[in-house]
Design a protein around this nucleic acid. Structure first.
Ligand SMILES: [Mn+2]
Ligand SMILES: [Mn+2]
Ligand SMILES: [Zn+2]
Ligand SMILES: [Zn+2]
Lengths: 142, 142
DNA sequence: TTCCTTATTGATAAAATTATCAATAAGGAA
DNA sequence: TTCCTTATTGATAATTTTATCAATAAGGAA
């Protein structure tokens, strides 16, 4: 993917380094979308990388804004490349999910800002609910 | 606290039971507010309860709507008694936090519902940002 | 290219969280 | 109260995640 060189420069500007491990994890997320640490490890295991390195690298990349952390509702976290801003909606019944335009929340957020005095980072939220299908037939679908 | 009898009835109606362990954990959360599993275990350790029981009980109570799960931003979760609906704002710099009236998000959520077809559970969200103090003096405060 | 500094990794241990399963006890029925 | 069914717990092992620290390698300087 073409963003590796850009990220390399960005990291070096902060005194950090681009390593083969970071490269492999970024690549895995590039063609994997939202992935859990375990899923990512599967995809980079062949390089000999340690699980500890996967966790460390994900935390590092997230802290530096290169990755976004997402709540999957199962208590565990997922990671993804931080591209265009967005939020998520997940169906509590069937797990279906979709992305949401952050513009929909903008007015609510700016109102929260003016009422609380906080400066909010719109961020990357996850909303839970029922998808159109599960809204009808209450129980079906695992 | 006075809600134990009510919760007992609620649980029995679903075939579940009120145990001394559940009672102790609810009591801990009643006078503790938002607590992590470790913090809760500290407070009920004297009863001889196992850590595994703490985790199981928290998951059980949350699944049944008696507890809310909160994202604390540190990757770990916190639990609290589900009372009046609200959301949270946490300062990424100093950790200061405050609750937010869910009514502020209501219009945005109903618009998301009409645009996506999902039925959303307003829920219990956590927003991150900078508090009024940290917004000014950029670096200070651990 | 060679050398140096040190950020990063692997190896390992520790800690936190989850899964198994037999023993216990909640609470409904008699 | 006594008895029974079975939800729940404790004990234990397995898995996941985090912390330590010496060995490695990124990448700037010479
Ligand atoms: Mn996302
Ligand atoms: Mn809360
Ligand atoms: Zn669904
Ligand atoms: Zn602050």
């Amino acid at each position: 993917m073409s963003c590796i060189p850009r990220l390399t420069i960005m990291l070096r500007a902060c005194g950090y380094r681009m390593t083969s491990q970071r490269h492999a994890i970024l690549q895995a997320l590039h063609d994997g979308g939202h992935l859990s640490p375990a899923q990512i490890y599967q995809r980079v295991e062949s390089t000999g990388m340690t699980e500890a390195t996967v966790y460390r690298t994900l935390e590092f990349l997230a802290e530096n804004g290169i990755l976004l952390v997402a709540d999957r509702g199962n208590g565990h976290l997922a990671y993804e490349l931080s591209g265009e801003s967005h939020h998520h909606i997940i169906c509590r019944t069937c797990g279906a999910q979709m992305e949401v335009d952050p513009a929909l929340l903008a007015p609510a957020i700016s109102q929260m800002e003016s009422e609380t005095g906080y400066h909010l980072n719109a961020g990357h939220l996850t909303f839970f609910g029922l998808c159109p299908l599960c809204k009808q037939k209450p129980q079906e679908r695992a």
